[in-house]
């Protein structure tokens, strides 16, 4: 009975701490790493920020696949710089995540063991040069819609990382659209290549904005913590509304027979998304799930002796410094 009483007091205290915490976020104050936070807030943030970081570095691979084959020197340096930015963004996000008390190595372990998720779209293959255009245009386009609201999310380090990411990413989508534009102004073969890329990337790009609202589990809590400002369906509608006119300018056809502008709503109506495909890819049955993870894992495992060498060297130097001081 006595213990029960103590527990009640603790629960009461916890509840009031949480209320103060939630009120702080509601007032648009930021939460910093050393501030008190509910365990659930910490865990949710570790999950979301690390997923985001993993998506950046796995996302390097499908585009990296075309660096050595880029068709001009200008395209090659632009693509290299873009993929390099993604490494940088992964790095900023891992760092933000590390402020919550988890190491980059632990986060990598989660990725390599398949425990952690990353954006499913990177499990699709890049088959032609036009795919590099389509990824920049559609995938980065969808990512920007997701990311811009995160610049004002409640967790300080995440918000600051996102400000940097969004600033740097502004060239990525333009880079992709310019590639598409060049193809669409080119030969019939190039136009066909562009259309083929749109056909293959359109639906995965729509899926990238997440399951429909009634299937999405974390939305309400995420809204409160400003991890989300709009629902998945709202974001998807926004993406379609802004992307369809861009496809029109290219003279490409969006591969959706049901796509039609609705004068009453002021939005595009669109066809059914194949969610079965989405969940299959999430579960690991996409064309490239295995390659992507093994590429990341190989890079890390093959780098172990390099990282160890640098640490050993640093230790030896530090010892030398101590001896010299004596």
């Amino acid at each position: 009975m006595k213990n029960q009483g103590k527990k009640n007091v603790r629960d009461e205290q916890m509840k009031s701490l949480e209320e103060i915490f939630e009120a702080k976020i509601a007032r648009d104050e930021k939460i910093e790493p050393k501030d008190w936070m509910p365990e659930k807030y910490r865990k949710t943030h570790i999950r979301q920020i690390s997923q985001h970081a993993h998506s950046e570095i796995v996302g390097m691979l499908p585009e990296g696949n075309w660096i050595t084959r880029a068709p001009s020197l200008r395209r090659k340096v632009a693509l290299l710089a873009k993929v390099q930015d993604e490494a940088g963004h992964g790095l900023y996000l891992y760092s933000a995540c590390e402020t919550l008390g988890i190491s980059r190595e632990e986060l990598y372990d989660q990725l390599h063991s398949g425990k952690a998720k990353y954006s499913s779209i990177f499990n699709y293959p890049t088959l032609t040069w036009a795919d590099i255009g389509a990824i920049g245009w559609l995938v980065d386009g969808a990512a920007i819609i997701n990311q811009v609201p995160l610049c004002s999310t409640s967790f300080g380090p995440y918000a600051r990382a996102m400000v940097r990411v969004c600033k740097e990413e502004s060239f990525h989508q333009r880079q992709g659209y310019e590639i598409m534009m060049t193809l669409c102004n080119g030969t019939q073969e190039q136009k066909d290549m562009a259309q083929d890329a749109l056909d293959r990337w359109w639906w995965p790009a729509l899926m990238m904005l997440g399951p429909t609202d009634d299937e999405s589990t974390h939305t309400e809590q995420s809204m409160k913590w400003k991890l989300k400002r709009k629902t998945n369906d709202e974001l998807r509608q926004q993406f379609i509304d802004q992307t369809v006119p861009q496809a029109d300018i290219l003279g490409l056809k969006v591969p959706d027979e049901d796509l039609k502008y609705n004068n009453e709503t002021g939005h595009y109506d669109f066809g059914e998304i194949d969610w079965e495909e989405f969940w299959q890819v999430v579960k690991g049955h996409g064309m490239c799930n295995k390659e992507r993870i093994s590429a990341r894992k190989n890079a890390w495992d093959n780098g172990e002796w390099v990282r160890d060498a640098a640490v050993a060297y640093a230790d030896k130097q530090a010892e030398k410094d101590v001896k010299e001081a004596v």
Binding site: E98, D109, V311
Partner: peptide, 9 residues
């Protein structure tokens, strides 16, 4: 995993 990881700066 590495025996000793690179420290954070």
């Amino acid at each position: 995993m590495s025996k000793k990881n690179w420290p954070l700066w």
